[in-house]
């Protein structure tokens, strides 16, 4: 179906934030701590995990909105290193933000919001061309051309997210980071917006990194899914594979929390409850980050971090005891 060559490659990406503790001391907050994956052309990689595990930071660091602490980002077989690379890369890679309210400037009209990337990159030669391009983009996301001169506050959450999507399409990108684009929306609208993402992918040949905090949302749209916990990817596999055969204890817990529409199935599905809260990334546990909440944790888990290894074709897990747990 899609081309097998990777469009985006992320190698051992790290992002630490300096957090002030006390007056003059600071401590690194390891929001993303050694993440690697690649996304093929035309593919969608779903990235799931609890809130605060570093998903947004991964997305923003890939686009160099945060300077990576360490690691490499490759686009189309070329590493993004200096300022010129970043400038060029940003014309090919854009972002849809999580919050449809704070992501649109309340003092700008819809056409100025969508046209902003065009203005910044001077991508038109006349006012007329600009206007036509904006109307075309609005048409792509199902907005009425009469809306062009309105202000964002006049729209509902779903429509606002469409405006944000139109803006992210303005520069004709290949790759879009979708940072929880539907989690702020009404459930009834989520499906519509997700379908629209799929249609746009078909029509424009886009590649997505699709972030969500629950598996149900990404199940539909993703080709492969990465599960993240406390700054690390703990499991990565084809979407269907993760659903049928989750191997990591954390993925199992996440999956068991997904509501099942069929009550007969629901009864047989023993729900795994996670005890305790997600630890703060400021004081991440030694060894395996999940060990404070893992029912299988042993001494080894506290001593050494598990290796992120392939257990079957295209299925990667970071857990010392995969075999024992799943046999």
């Amino acid at each position: 179906m899609h081309n097998k060559s990777p469009l985006i490659e992320v190698k051992n990406l790290k992002k630490y934030f300096d957090i002030n503790v006390g007056m003059f001391r600071s401590k690194p907050l390891k929001a993303v701590d050694g993440v690697s994956f690649s996304i093929n052309k035309g593919e969608t990689l779903g990235l799931v995990g609890e809130s605060g595990c570093g998903k947004t930071t991964v997305g923003r660091t890939i686009l160099h909105l945060y300077t990576p602490t360490d690691g490499e980002i490759w686009y189309n077989g070329k590493q993004i290193k200096n300022k010129t690379d970043i400038r060029e890369f940003r014309k090919k890679a854009t972002m849809v933000f999580q919050d449809p309210y704070s992501s649109l400037d309340p003092r700008m009209t819809v056409s100025d919001i969508i046209g902003e990337p065009l203005d910044i990159n001077k991508m038109y030669s006349s006012k007329k061309e600009r206007r036509e391009r904006i109307l075309e983009l609005m048409n792509h996301v199902g907005l009425n051309s009469e809306h062009a001169s309105r202000y964002a506050h006049e729209f509902s959450g779903g429509q606002r997210q469409r405006i944000g999507i139109a803006r992210s399409l303005a520069v004709n990108p290949d790759f879009i980071v979708c940072d929880e684009p539907v989690s702020a929306l009404d459930v009834s609208i989520q499906a519509q917006v997700i379908n629209m993402f799929e249609d746009l992918q078909q029509k424009l040949g886009l590649t997505y990194l699709f972030i969500a905090h629950d598996l149900l949302v990404v199940r539909h749209i993703s080709d492969r899914i990465a599960v993240m916990y406390l700054g690390k990817i703990v499991e990565l596999a084809d979407a269907a594979e993760i659903y049928e055969r989750p191997l990591h204890p954390y993925s199992k817990a996440l999956l068991s929390a997904v509501p099942v529409p069929d009550p007969k199935l629901a009864r047989t599905n023993n729900r795994i409850m996670l005890s305790g809260d997600i630890p703060s990334p400021l004081n991440a546990p030694s060894g395996c980050p999940f060990r404070t909440r893992c029912e299988y944790a042993t001494e080894q888990c506290a001593l050494e971090p598990p290796e992120f290894k392939q257990v079957s074709k295209g299925h990667f897990v970071a857990c010392h005891k995969v075999e024992e747990i799943n046999s």
Binding site: L65, R90, K91, S103, R107, E116, G164, R167
Partner: peptide, 27 residues
């Protein structure tokens, strides 16, 4: 500064002067 529309302008390559003129002052 924390608003995502500022981040979005940055992601599109906007310079500081544009961000101040178009986003910070009007708001």
């Amino acid at each position: 500064r924390e608003q995502e529309y500022i981040l979005s302008a940055k992601a599109n390559g906007a310079k500081a002067s544009r961000i101040i003129r178009k986003h910070l002052i009007p708001n």
